[in-house]
Write a protein that binds this DNA or RNA. Sequence first.
DNA 1: ATCGTTGCAAATGTTTTGCATGTCA
DNA 2: TGACATGCAAAACATTTGCAACGAT
Lengths: 130, 130
Amino acid sequence: MTETPIRTTRQRRAVAAVMDDLDRFASAREIHDALRDRGESVGLSTVYRNLQALADAAEVDQLRNDEGEVLYRRCITDNHHHHLVCRECGRTVEVQGPALERWVEQVGAEHGFRQMAHTLELFGTCDQCG
Amino acid sequence: MTETPIRTTRQRRAVAAVMDDLDRFASAREIHDALRDRGESVGLSTVYRNLQALADAAEVDQLRNDEGEVLYRRCITDNHHHHLVCRECGRTVEVQGPALERWVEQVGAEHGFRQMAHTLELFGTCDQCG
DNA sequence: ATCGTTGCAAATGTTTTGCATGTCA
DNA sequence: TGACATGCAAAACATTTGCAACGAT
């Protein structure tokens, strides 16, 4: 179990910088495009590799849209949370749900299921888009 | 708005029959394999087309697993519901969640979101696998 | 005889990987 | 220098689509 050093490359910094400025979930391709628009040339596979690394380090959240694409966004909160996403503009709010978590445990228990886990995403139209 | 007739083909019957016997979510490839095992030769694209048709007719539920594959299963209930899936054996229970639905509406309202929608899947280990 | 359906092969689109080359520490 | 990182092309996947042949009505 030796730690693998992580090197600070131009590409890694560029991806992190884009993620910092992103207030909504975006696909790898969108992030790749954003990099190009900033004049930062980064290979698409490098974008994927860096996003994966950020996700492994719990620096970004991942979710899948209806088309099955993986979307990425820097997380604000470290704790377990869910996302309320505007279906128009993509604006995202992180929400905690103690009541939901309790409900999940209860439903599991009712059916004899243990070690419960869950995935939940909320969608709606925000007041600026409504 | 004229209705398009739907023809009863051997392939369509075979796919429906497999879905009837399936008590867990399965991928298109698994369903294709199940058809082969039954001695029913059905092209993979036909499987996809028929599963899509069944989903459009709300005869089967669709969900995406972690790998991004779409899984299919005949629905028991017509109303809105969620799935509690055993991560070991795939056994699935359909659950209704009035409390959850209320929670969703409330969270949306708190942040000024309207026309709320949500996706939720529950995973756990069932008593037979625990 | 229609016209929806099928099957195959080819296309699509996202994500991953092999490998030679580049570059941070 | 040496190990990790990158870039490109190619591979790997699930899924969709074009099109000629098929078959239900």
